[in-house]
Amino acid sequence: MSRPRSMDVIENSEFITISELVLLSGMRYSTVKYYTEEGLLPFEQIDSRLVRRYPRIDALNRLNEINLLKSNGLTMWEIKGKILCK
């Protein structure tokens, strides 16, 4: 198991792990994982160990977009339709 990266390193990295995305976004791990499994969050599998790496800026922007749509009263079904039809 690798040593956790510092917040300074995370905030300046192009790609981050799901745990680091949770730290930056303040969301629950299960919520971020759910959005990933629903195809709402962009990620790449960089190595053969199947570790997902999220593009930091794009993933945080997408989480903000989802939160905005949720605050406007849209259901997850409607949010998914809006985001995936872009």
Rank of each mutant, 00 (worst) to 15 (best):
M1A: 15
S2P: 06
S2C: 02
R3F: 09
R3T: 12
R5M: 02
R5W: 03
S6K: 14
M7D: 13
M7H: 09
E11N: 11
E14L: 09
E14Y: 07
F15H: 08
I16L: 02
T17I: 00
I18N: 00
I18G: 11
S19G: 15
E20A: 02
L21H: 03
L21W: 06
V22R: 15
V22D: 06
V22W: 04
L23G: 08
L23M: 11
S25P: 10
M27V: 01
R28V: 05
Y29I: 05
Y29P: 10
Y29M: 09
S30N: 13
T31F: 07
Y34V: 04
T36K: 08
T36V: 02
E37W: 02
E37V: 01
E38S: 08
G39H: 04
P42H: 09
P42C: 04
P42R: 10
P42I: 03
F43I: 00
F43W: 05
E44L: 08
E44M: 04
Q45D: 01
Q45R: 08
I46W: 02
I46E: 04
D47M: 00
D47W: 01
S48R: 12
S48P: 00
R49A: 01
R49Y: 01
V51W: 02
V51H: 09
R53K: 14
R53D: 00
R53I: 00
Y54M: 01
Y54H: 04
P55A: 08
P55G: 07
R56S: 03
I57H: 13
D58N: 12
D58E: 15
A59I: 01
A59P: 10
L60W: 11
N61S: 12
N61R: 15
R62Y: 06
R62C: 05
R62P: 09
L63V: 05
N64L: 12
E65Q: 15
I66G: 07
N67I: 03
L68M: 11
L69P: 13
L69S: 11
K70D: 01
K70H: 05
K70A: 07
K70E: 11
K70C: 03
S71D: 11
N72D: 13
N72R: 15
G73W: 12
L74W: 05
T75D: 04
M76T: 05
W77M: 12
E78D: 14
E78N: 14
I79S: 05
K80M: 05
K80V: 03
G81A: 09
G81E: 12
G81Y: 11
K82M: 11
K82A: 06
I83L: 12
L84V: 01
L84S: 07
C85H: 13
C85E: 15
K86G: 15
K86V: 13
